[in-house]
Nucleic acid binder design. Structure first.
Lengths: 336, 336
DNA sequence: TTGAAAGCGCTAACAG
DNA sequence: CTGTTAGCGCTTTCAA
C-alpha cells in the first residue's frame, strides 16, 4: 500500500537498494540462512522490516528456477463429490504443508485423458512427486513421470510400476459381507445370498471386493448367483439402471445388497425410492464407503470407512523414506 | 525412456542441438507461434517429434519468469467435506482450465491465519487472481493482493473491497421458510414458528438468512421467539449442543426448523437420533444447502441448492470482463 | 561480515 | 525463414 498500483513488484534488488545493501544479503536474510552468512543482526532486522513494509513476496518462479528442488507435490484425484476423496484431498494438503511442500491438486472427473494431461502439466511445474488417486491408468502416469525423473505413487487404486497404498479391499469386503449376511438372515429368518452392485469389473478394488464378497458367502455356505454381481460402473445412474434391469428380468431383486461405493449407493437409493422399496420394504445394505447422512438416516445399513489418515500417513512415509517400485500396501478399513 | 535416469531434464537447448537449430526456434514451435515466425514446417515437425520422443516438458518456472502473465489463478476454500464446496472447487477447476488458466486451490479448514498465509503463498506463485471462498476475512485477503497488484474476488461470503458473488440469501431463506412453515402447519394443524439453527450471527449470509426467516414469519403473521434463533456456528457439534441446551432449558424444542447448512444439519440429525426424534417424531425441516442422501432419505425436509454453476459463471465473467470493486452479485438458489 | 557475478530455462526483440 | 542476445528474479559460489 506504500506504493499504490505497482507496475513492477518489489524485488530483492529494490529491497537491497532501500536497505543500502546487496541483493545477496537480502536473499540470505529472507531465506533465514543469515547466521550461516553471519550477517549483522541490525542489517537483518532492517531488511526484514523493509520487506514487511513493502509487502514483499518472493517470486517463486525465479526462486525455483535457481534452486534444485521445487518442493512442489502434485495429486491427481477423480472427483470432489464424496467424503472419501474430499478427506483424501484435505488430509493430503495438510500433511504436505506440514512438510513444507506445496500441494497442487487436479481433479480429472474420471477422464483418462485429463489424467495424463494433468500429470504432464504437473511435470512442467517441476513437481517432485505425483500421487495418482483412483487413476484409471496409473502406470501410464508413472511412466510419464519416470521419463522426467519424477517419482510417483498410487493411492486408492494400485499400479504395478510405483508403490501403491490402498484399502485392504478383500478383508474389508469379506467382513462387511459377513455382517450384512447376518443382518439379512436375522431379518429374513433364513440365510440368503446378497447382490453385489457398483464398480468396474476390471478394476483391482472391485475385483478384490467381489472376491471378499464371495469368500464370505462361501464361509457361510451360501450359494451365490453370478447374475447378481453387477459391476456396472460407479455412476449412480448405472446402479439405478442395473437394479431396474434385474427387477424387469427376474421380477424381483434380492433384498440384501453389497454396494461398492457411496456413489453407487446414491443410485441404489434412487432405485429404492422410485420402486417403493422404502421403510419396512427397504433392503438390508452394506456399503464399502462411508457418509455421515447415510449413517444417520439409513436404518438397515453397515458401512466400512476407508482409513484415510492411515493411508496418507503411509503415503508420506514413502515420500519421506522411500519404498520399492511395485510394493502394495493395504490398509485395513474401519467398521463403525 | 530414451534417456534413462536423466540427471538433467531435457531443455530447449538439448532439443535445438538434436534438431540442428536454435533454442528460439524450438521455443517458437513449441509455443505454437511458429507461423508468426514463419518457421519451415519440416523443421517444425522435426522439433515436435523430437520433443515428443524425449518426453520434453517446458519448465514453467523458467517460462513464467520470462513471461508477463502467469495464467495462474488461485482459490481459497474452507473445506472439502460437503457437496457445496466440492462442486465449487470442481467447477472452478474446470472453468479455469477451459480458459487456459492453471488453478491452484488451498483448503484453509476455516483457519483465518491459514487464509492469509495461503493468499501470501499464492502471491509468491504470481497468481493473477485470488478467489476467496467462504473466507472469514475476505477484505484482508483483498488488501494483501492489492498490495501486489493482484486482483481478487469473493465467493459465497461477501467482502467490501472486491467484487462478491454470493447466493441470494434473503430471498432463498424467505422462500425456504415459507415452504417449511406450510409443511409444518399441515402437520401440526395450526401455524407455529420455526427454530433457526446454524451459522455465525455476524456473518453476512447468516444474518441475511435470518432476515429472510423473520420476513417469512412476519408475512404469515407468525410471532417468533428470539431465543429460537441459534446462530451457534457451523460445526455439527455446535448445533447438536445448542438443541440439547434448548431442550434442557425449555423442556422441548420446536418441531419445525430452518437449518443453515448441511454441516449444521449433520448436528441436528445427531441430536434427533440421540433424543429419539426420528420417524413419526422427526421435526419438519428446511435446509439452506443440498445433499443427495438427505434428499433421498429424509422424509420431511425442504432443501435449497445454491446455484454453483451460475455463481462460477459470474465469477469467470468478472475475471474475463471485469466488475467494480465493491459490487455484490446475488445468485438465486434453486428449489428442488 | 559483505558484495559481485554467474547462470537456472525460457521468451522476445532484433539482426540477419 | 532463422539465430543471437538480453534479461526475467533469484540463489550461490567466490573473492574481498
Amino acid at each position: 500500500m506504500n506504493r499504490p498500483k505497482q507496475p513492477k513488484r518489489t524485488t530483492i534488488y529494490d529491497l537491497a537498494e532501500l536497505a543500502g545493501t546487496s541483493a545477496s544479503a537480502v536473499s540470505a536474510v529472507l531465506n533465514g540462512n543469515w547466521k550461516k552468512r553471519r550477517i549483522g543482526s541490525q542489517l537483518a532486522e532492517r531488511i526484514t522490516k523493509l520487506a514487511e513494509e513493502q509487502g514483499y513476496a518472493v517470486n517463486m518462479q525465479a526462486s525455483l528456477l535457481r534452486r534444485e528442488k521445487s518442493k512442489i507435490i502434485g495429486m491427481i484425484v477423480p472427483k470432489y463429490d464424496n467424503r472419501y476423496f474430499g478427506s483424501i484431498v484435505e488430509t493430503f494438503e495438510t500433511m504436505a504443508r506440514e512438510r513444507g511442500l506445496f500441494p497442487i491438486i487436479t481433479c480429472t472427473r474420471r477422464d483418462p485423458n485429463l489424467e495424463i494431461e494433468a500429470a504432464r502439466e504437473m511435470l512442467s511445474y517441476q513437481v517432485e512427486w505425483v500421487v495418482s488417486t483412483g487413476a484409471t491408468d496409473p502406470d501410464r502416469v508413472t511412466d510419464l513421470c519416470a521419463a522426467s525423473g519424477v517419482r510417483s505413487l498410487n493411492l486408492d487404486l494400485p499400479g504395478s510400476k510405483a508403490p501403491s497404498v490402498i484399502s485392504d479391499n478383500f478383508s474389508g469386503a469379506r467382513e462387511l459381507t459377513r455382517r450384512v449376511l447376518v443382518n439379512y438372515e436375522r431379518k429374513l429368518g433364513h440365510r440368503s445370498p446378497l447382490l453385489f452392485i457398483g464398480g468396474r469389473g476390471n478394476d483391482h478394488n472391485t475385483s478384490e471386493r467381489v472376491r471378499g464378497f464371495l469368500a464370505a458367502h462361501a464361509e457361510m455356505g451360501i450359494a451365490i448367483d453370478e447374475h447378481h454381481i453387477l459391476t456396472c460402473g460407479y455412476a449412480p445412474e448405472k446402479a439405478e439402471e442395473a437394479l431396474a434391469a434385474v427387477a424387469r428380468a427376474e421380477g424381483s431383486v434380492p433384498m440384501g445388497m453389497f454396494v461398492n461405493s457411496t456413489i453407487s449407493l446414491e443410485g441404489v437409493m434412487r432405485w429404492m425410492t422410485c420402486s417403493g422399496h422404502t421403510g419396512a420394504k427397504a433392503p438390508t445394505l452394506g456399503c464399502f464407503d462411508w457418509d455421515p447422512f447415510v449413517a444417520l438416516l439409513c436404518e438397515d445399513i453397515e458401512m466400512v470407512r476407508q482409513d484415510v489418515p492411515a493411508m496418507l500417513a503411509r503415503v508420506f512415509d514413502i515420500i519421506d523414506h522411500g519404498a520399492h517400485a511395485g510394493s502394495l500396501i493395504e490398509i485395513p478399513p474401519v467398521f463403525i
